[in-house]
């Protein structure tokens, strides 16, 4: 399938390795990946922080860039959540019926990586090899906004060599929440410390998730504590092969 990669501005800038891994996995499965260079940011940070009028041009831009594709895939649950769940609200705010129509046309074609693989393509084994103790944190937007369910876990279970360890209170938010992590830094940190405790309790080497934003938060906390556990995006585990190891 001809798939457009929506990398997200955050991954583009901070986590290029996740983007590379996503391309690797999709191409390995025979998809033709395109990367429209005109893409920038979906507008989530602006929209969720309240700068919603400012987000509207970004919504228009996104729709324009990605409308021509059969499927749009992103390695981020929360950015896909923005497009699928909140773009209609942005279009209503813009009072633009045409934009609303376009958004509603586009939304069902936009997928988070794991749901694209498992739910859209019916694939769980992507030929990965990853001989590590790994625990999985289901990020809130993947879980509750996109309802990806166990798709990421199904993918992980099919990875050869992996030792998947269950995370206690996994469904609880890590405390990132976008600008929440800065505006309410104290509360965010209180939430993070419980998440870190549960991660450390698993004795895993790696904590993975489908969103680098949450992982940066969790990873930043682990690093500050010199905890000796690293965070790795799901796409990178899926991209990993026996040859590469």
């Amino acid at each position: 399938m001809r798939v457009a990669l929506f990398i997200t501005c955050f991954n583009d800038t901070f986590f290029p390795e996740t983007g590379r891994a996503t391309v690797e996995v999709l191409e390995r499965l025979g998809h033709e990946v395109e990367f429209p260079l005109a893409q920038t940011c979906c507008g989530q940070m602006h929209f969720n922080t309240g700068y919603q009028r400012e987000a509207i041009p970004l919504v228009r831009r996104f729709v324009e860039v990605f409308a021509p594709y059969e499927a749009v895939v992103a390695p981020s649950g929360s950015c896909v959540g923005m497009v699928r769940e909140l773009y209609p609200m942005a279009a209503e705010l813009a009072n633009d019926k045409r934009l609303l129509y376009e958004v509603e046309e586009l939304a069902p074609k936009v997928f988070e990586l794991s749901e694209f693989l498992v739910k859209r393509m019916g694939v769980t084994d992507v030929g990965a090899y990853y001989p590590h103790h790994v625990t999985y944190h289901p990020t809130c937007h993947s879980l509750r906004m996109l309802k990806v369910g166990d798709a990421p876990l199904e993918l992980l279970r099919a990875v050869r060599g992996i030792d998947l360890v269950e995370l206690r209170e996994a469904r609880e938010c890590c405390g990132f929440g976008g600008t929440f992590a800065v505006k309410n830094a104290d509360t965010s940190t209180a939430m993070l410390s419980d998440k870190l405790r549960h991660v450390l309790d698993t004795e895993a080497e790696v904590c993975t998730a489908g969103d680098n934003s949450c992982l940066m938060h969790i990873g930043g906390g682990l690093k500050r504590q010199r905890a000796g556990v690293r965070t790795v995006h799901l796409a990178e585990i899926l991209a990993s092969t026996e040859e590469a190891n």
Partner: peptide, 23 residues
């Protein structure tokens, strides 16, 4: 104002190459 982040967390530095540069 961003100091709230680094009170309890390290921030990942921006790597040498963006994804789009790689692409």
């Amino acid at each position: 104002r961003l100091a709230g982040w680094t009170e309890s967390r390290d921030l990942k530095a921006i790597p040498k190459q963006t994804f789009r540069e790689w692409w």
